[in-house]
């Protein structure tokens, strides 16, 4: 009897240790490829060539660190392109945020003819892959180009035009998300404000919007990220480097004729990634909000 009880101790501890560490082991194994990928990317941007994870110089020896892949930072073009990316991203944040919080409020709170139909229509619209719409959008942008004041800003081959298209494609999702947040706000609060003497617009601005700040923030982040990394729309509706954004610029570095400097491409890619990563680290909690459908009972 005595021996068995003594044996259970270590055995039990071992099993407990395994039980605790197993999830970590599994998690580490599963993210290992991603971590290695990023490590590779970062190392590659600072080397002439890499062999596996190791940078090598012209003679095939380990070493060969260099900053030449980052030389593009001295080219004013990259900053122009970055600015374009930023413009598209911020355009989406502001455009989608503003329009969808107004539209969703109306859809959540007011009863009007065609409300149901509108809601299901927007959902269907969201289901369309943007690729199928490219040709139609081209005609729309071309048409806008012909309008005097708007044309040069929002027409074909302009950053504004790209932002406009991206905003419209994102609106259905934005409206639905925002509607979910508005639906969570009690009607009584709104009625109380109306009785207190607020206009409908003030109710929206002073009473309701402050309650869905987490939702707005989540939507903003979401849109910033998708605007920042947009490729298909900018690639399709812009020509040349003047109005390209970062992902399109990256694509232009891959030449069909000359040999491609992959390490430079890695550097540009990393450059594009940095703001996103910083952004994500600070906002991931808010981003999760989008899936839980709003903050409840917050102060």
């Amino acid at each position: 009897m005595a021996t068995t009880t003594r044996d259970i101790g270590p055995l039990y501890n071992l099993r407990r240790f395994l039980g605790r560490s197993l999830p970590y082991v599994l998690l580490i194994i599963s993210i290992l490829p991603i971590v290695i990928g990023y490590a590779w990317l970062i190392i590659a941007t600072f080397s002439y060539r890499t062999e596996g994870l190791f940078p090598i110089d012209a003679n095939g020896n380990i070493g060969g660190w260099t900053l030449r892949n980052w030389a593009f930072l001295r080219d004013p073009k990259i900053w122009h392109v970055t600015l374009n990316s930023l413009g598209i991203a911020l355009g989406m944040v502001v455009g989608v945020g503003f329009v969808s919080s107004l539209a969703a409020y109306a859809l959540s709170r007011m009863n009007f003819a065609g409300r149901k139909a509108f809601l299901s229509l927007t959902l269907i619209l969201h289901a369309f892959p943007s690729v199928t719409l490219l040709i139609a959008i081209f005609f729309v942008l071309n048409f806008i180009s012909g309008i005097p004041v708007l044309g040069p800003r929002f027409g074909y081959n302009t950053v504004g035009g790209v932002a406009l298209v991206m905003v419209s494609l994102e609106l259905p999702l934005g409206v639905w998300l925002m509607k979910g947040f508005f639906d969570n706000i009690s009607w009584d609060m709104e009625r109380a404000a109306l009785i207190d003497g607020a206009s409908r617009f003030r109710v929206w601005w002073e009473i309701i919007l402050p309650q869905i700040k987490p939702g707005l923030a989540a939507l903003a982040i979401f849109n910033f990220l998708s605007g920042w990394s947009a490729f298909l729309i900018p690639f399709t509706f812009t020509v040349g480097t003047k109005v390209a954004n970062l992902p399109v610029y990256l694509r232009q570095l891959i030449s069909d004729t000359a040999p491609t400097n992959w390490n430079q491409i890695a550097a540009v890619g990393l450059f594009q990634l940095i703001p996103v990563m910083i952004f994500f680290i600070f906002t991931q909690e808010m981003l999760l909000n989008i899936y839980s459908g709003g903050a409840k009972g917050g102060v």
Partner: peptide, 13 residues
């Protein structure tokens, strides 16, 4: 008019 609601309907922010 003044109105008092069951849920109080105070403005939480």
């Amino acid at each position: 008019i003044g109105m008092v609601f069951q849920s109080y309907a105070l403005y939480p922010h």
